[in-house]
Simulated scan of single mutants.
Amino acid sequence: MLHILLIEDELIIAKDLKMTLEKQKFSKVDVSKNEEEAITFFTSNTYDIIITDINLNSKKDGIEIISHFNTIKKIPVVYLTAYSDDDIIKRAEATSPFAYILKPFNESQLKATINLALLNFKKRDQASKGLIDNSDKIALLTKREKQVLVTLSNGNSSKEIAEVLNISNQTVEKHKQNIREKLNLRTVAEMINFTMTSRLYKLK
């Protein structure tokens, strides 16, 4: 069962959302109506996702509250809003939300958005961990081996790599062999995939 923190100052909407989200044991929902209550809940519990109204009758609006939470721990966020104002959306984007829901909304839309936000957060988290792992592996490579990988990822053959880097074809093959052994890669496709997913091509 999901554990959701809902930040909503309109009592009727908050009750309706809580009832909808707890239906059929989809989730357990804690409701806060302002910044102080939200902080107390957030620091005392572990949540799978936060749903917050952007416009709150509080010292800080939903965007400012999430900005603060992001300095503590990042979890997926879905914003509720009755407006599609460009300035509001731009401010909200700075907090890296995973979805917006415009009021009014229905139950199926709400749950689908939550599930999508959770899925996208998981994918981003896995990708981030993958980059960290690859960073450790990149440290094993020499500067020349990195150059060979980057040139290889551009679709160049060993002969072309040799010409670009002004080294012999035999030296290129030796570097490629060293790369395979250090990174436990077997094929050219795996080497190219490593280069792209680790963003090695952006490193100087």
Rank of each mutant, 00 (worst) to 15 (best):
L2W: 00
L2Y: 09
H3Y: 05
L5P: 03
D9E: 10
E10H: 13
I12F: 10
A14L: 06
K15L: 08
L17I: 11
T20I: 15
K33Q: 13
N34F: 02
E36D: 13
F41K: 14
T43I: 07
S44C: 01
S44F: 01
D48C: 04
I49H: 06
T52S: 15
N55Q: 14
N55D: 04
L56P: 10
L56C: 13
N57R: 14
S58K: 03
K59I: 13
K60L: 15
K60N: 14
I63Q: 02
E64D: 14
S67Q: 11
H68W: 14
I72K: 09
K73H: 11
K73G: 05
P76Y: 04
Y79K: 11
Y83K: 09
I89W: 02
T95A: 09
P97E: 03
P97I: 03
A99F: 05
I101H: 02
F105V: 00
F105R: 01
N106R: 10
K111V: 03
T113L: 03
I114W: 03
N115E: 09
L116I: 09
L118K: 09
R124Y: 11
A127S: 07
S128D: 12
K129S: 12
K129Y: 06
I132Q: 11
D136I: 14
I138T: 08
I138N: 12
L141M: 06
V148D: 04
L149Y: 05
T151L: 05
L152P: 04
S153N: 09
S153K: 02
N154G: 14
G155D: 02
N156C: 06
S158K: 04
S158G: 07
I161M: 03
I161S: 06
A162P: 10
L165Q: 08
I167H: 04
S168G: 13
N169K: 11
E173F: 08
K174G: 01
K176P: 05
N184K: 15
L185V: 06
T187A: 04
T187N: 04
T187S: 15
T187C: 06
V188E: 15
E190K: 06
F194S: 05
S198A: 09
